[in-house]
Nucleic acid binder design. Structure first.
Length: 429
RNA sequence: GCGGGUGUAGCUCAGUUGGUUAGAGCGCCAGAUUGUGAUUCUGGAGGUCGCGGGUUCGAGACCCGUCACUCGCCCCA
């Protein structure tokens, strides 16, 4: 973690982090696994701008949502346009879908990766700039899309070794009719028990009554116990849809628990909502979450188009992934000139080896002890030692840094020797 | 936005009821070893004690403010 600030200007902006070293490798690893799987599921990469007209998020997320009302990085550009750094991926993809007239080429299956920005109080697993991987399917109203998108998520978490660390919770928010009926019943119930509700939940009752269901307040929870249950308000279409999703998950051996208190605030959400949660990240238990948003594109002004997708937080995934699962950097070959007169030849040999695909650690300064020390520190496999004596014989010394053995090799044979030697090393492992 | 905890070297930390030139381990640089690493030994660099103010003869320590990190709430990936 970052240490306390030294001067006011040289610290990274609050809630932002430099990504390097092990963390960068972990990110790359997760992203690679993700992209391989997403492509296998038939998704294509999409990369949308990290900022959009503010309107794009206002309209999709709703003026009263927390994200819009207090978490967006909004600014005016020099032309006086109000722009916003994206707080989530879906709105931008929906906008891209409309902008590019993609209703002509349904269904659209996308995957993406990139930074998101929310002005929040930072915590473990919660930053102001964070990174998400994202999956969306547009134009498939059938529950098969729900199943597929969940299967993609489950496969990813499995490949990242997180199967036992997460639990899949799902719920159905129903279609519009079911949900509207349920919301009315809920408002009626909580209004009747208003005096038992926490302060937060009283505002939820006004703005977003379904949110009361996942309140952490003890008094609220007691009331929620006896509140109307959403499943009692499902109509036939909703029931059939949810059943089909569950049958599909069962068929794929994807285990889940139904959580009727898992909700989404915004009214363009419908049917399936889900979260993969963990207990290993403190208060930020949600690792991957998503749901069906059949009303979104129409609400933005596009043609009525079904949609479902999810996003996962890279930082949260990276916290969970076991370090030994992340591939270590390839071991280099150290090229060590002995003294200034050998440098030109060293550069030449280094370039020859790089061209053949080897990773080279070039030695720049110091006596031989320093140079080999440096080679050892970067876990070089071999050191190609280039000295005047050897060059006079048309040779170089190649030292195995694993066992310390060394051997002179004629210049023309250096590449062959190393190729052969390193292939044997690989077999030994 | 609200509440709790913490800020001493690049990293992990020690620093007594307030007392002189602020310490250790690891890491870094150099030497022992001007052509041979992982071990060892020796030396060195590196600190406005997060920042600003206050109390005091005297503050790394106490008080106030502020910034950052951290845990929780709200909300979310």
């Amino acid at each position: 973690m970052a240490k306390a600030q030294k001067g006011p200007k040289l610290q990274p902006v609050r809630g932002t982090h430099d990504i390097m070293g092990d963390k960068a490798r972990t990110f790359r690893f997760i992203n690679k696994v993700f992209q391989d799987i997403a492509k296998r599921f038939g998704h294509e990469e999409i990369s949308t701008p990290i900022f959009e007209f503010t309107e794009v998020f206002n309209r999709t997320l709703g003026e009263t949502s927390d994200v819009v009302s207090k978490e967006m990085y909004t600014f005016e550009d020099r032309g006086g346009e109000s722009l916003t750094l994206r707080p989530e991926y879906t709105a931008g993809i929906a906008r891209a879908f409309i902008s590019n007239g993609l209703q002509q080429s349904l269904p659209c299956k996308f995957f993406g990766f990139g930074p998101m920005f929310r002005y929040e109080r930072p915590q473990k697993g919660r930053m102001r700039q964070f990174h998400q991987i994202d999956v969306e399917i547009l134009g498939v109203p059938e529950p098969q899309a729900d199943i597929e998108v969940l299967a993609l998520a489950a496969t990813l978490l499995d490949k990242l070794g997180l199967k036992d660390d997460v639990t899949l919770e799902i719920n159905s928010l129903g279609d519009k009719e079911s949900r509207d009926n349920y919301r009315d019943a809920l408002v009626e119930y909580f209004t009747a028990h208003k005096d038992g509700l926490s302060e937060d939940s009283l505002t939820r009752l006004e703005k977003n009554p379904m949110r009361i269901l996942d309140s952490k307040d003890d008094g609220d929870r007691a009331l929620v116990e006896n509140a109307p249950r959403i499943s009692d308000y499902y109509n036939e279409a909703t029931k059939a849809f949810f059943d089909e999703v569950r049958v599909g998950l069962d068929a794929l051996d994807i285990t889940y628990v139904i959580n009727e208190r898992l909700v989404r605030g915004l009214d363009y959400y419908s049917h399936t909502a889900f979260e993969f949660i963990t207990t290993k990240l403190g208060a930020q238990g949600t690792v991957l979450a998503g749901g069906r948003y059949d009303g979104l594109i129409e609400k933005m002004g596009g043609p009525a188009t079904a949609g479902i997708g999810w996003a996962a937080g890279m930082e949260r995934l990276a916290e969970l992934v076991a370090p030994d699962l992340v591939p270590a950097p390839a071991r280099p070959i150290a090229v060590v000139p002995v003294g200034a007169t050998c440098q030109a030849k060293a550069i030449e040999i280094a370039q020859q080896l790089r061209s053949a695909g080897h990773r080279i650690e070039m030695s720049y300064r110091g006596n031989m002890a320093k140079r080999l020390k440096r080679a050892n520190k970067v876990h070089a496999n071999e050191a190609v030692i280039i000295g005047e004596d050897e060059l006079a014989r048309g040779r170089v010394m190649i030292k195995n840094l694993n066992d310390g053995n060394q051997q002179e090799v004629v210049l023309d044979e250096v590449l062959n020797y190393l190729n052969l030697y390193l292939s044997l090393e690989v077999k030994k492992l």
